[in-house]
Amino acid sequence: MSIVITVEQVNEQLEVMGFEATSLVISSAISIVDTIDTCLDNAGYSDAVVTLIKLYSVILILSSADVRKISSEHAPSGASVSYQYFADGRKTLLKTLSSLDPSGCTDSLPIERPVGIVQFDVVRG
C-alpha cells in the first residue's frame, strides 16, 4: 500500500527547516518520488519508514532546485534580502536516506549524490 505525501506535509517540513519552495515544484517532486512506490512496497518497509523515505527524497530533489531560506533582511530603504541555499543539511539527509533504504529504491531518483574519489596507484617494475 503506497503512502501519499502531500504538498502541505513537504511545506511543513521545509518550514521547520527554514526553507521555502513553490507548490508547483513540490508537487512535481512528489510525482517523481511516487514512481518508486512499487519498489518501496516490495521492500517491505513499514509505513513510517516509507513516509520518511518519500519525504526526505522530495526534499533532496528540491535541494537541487530553488529551495532557499532568508538568511538576512535589511530595510529602511536600502532594501536587501539575502538567501541561503540548501547545502548544510544535505549530507545528513543523504546519509539518513541511505540507512532507511537499504534496498536502494531511491537510487533511480534524480537525487544528486556525492561522488567518491577513487585513487589508483600505478607501479612500474
Rank of each mutant, 00 (worst) to 15 (best):
D37E: 07
T38C: 06
T38K: 15
C39Q: 15
C39K: 15
C39R: 15
C39Y: 12
L40V: 10
D41Q: 12
D41P: 05
A43Q: 13
G44T: 08
G44R: 13
G44W: 10
Y45N: 12
Y45Q: 05
Y45L: 06
D47R: 13
A48T: 12
A48F: 09
V49I: 15
V49M: 10
V50H: 02
T51V: 00
T51S: 05
T51M: 01
I53M: 05
I53Y: 02
K54H: 13
K54Y: 09
L55G: 02
Y56H: 12
S57D: 04
I59T: 04
L60P: 13
L60I: 02
L60V: 03
I61V: 05
L62K: 06
S63N: 04
S63H: 03
S64R: 12
A65F: 15
A65P: 11
V67A: 05
I70R: 08
E73S: 07
A75T: 14
A75P: 13
P76K: 13
P76L: 09
P76R: 14
S77T: 13
S77Q: 11
G78C: 04
A79R: 08
A79H: 08
S80M: 08
V81E: 04
V81Q: 04
V81S: 01
S82V: 06
S82K: 15
S82H: 14
Y83W: 11
Q84I: 00
Q84P: 00
Q84T: 05
Q84R: 01
Y85W: 11
Y85A: 11
F86H: 05
A87R: 00
A87D: 07
D88W: 04
G89T: 04
G89A: 09
G89P: 11
R90F: 00
R90M: 02
R90I: 01
T92N: 14
T92E: 12
L93R: 05
L93H: 01
K95C: 09
K95D: 11
T96S: 14
T96A: 14
T96F: 04
L97M: 06
L97P: 07
S98R: 09
S98C: 07
D101R: 01
P102I: 02
S103P: 00
G104S: 11
G104Q: 12
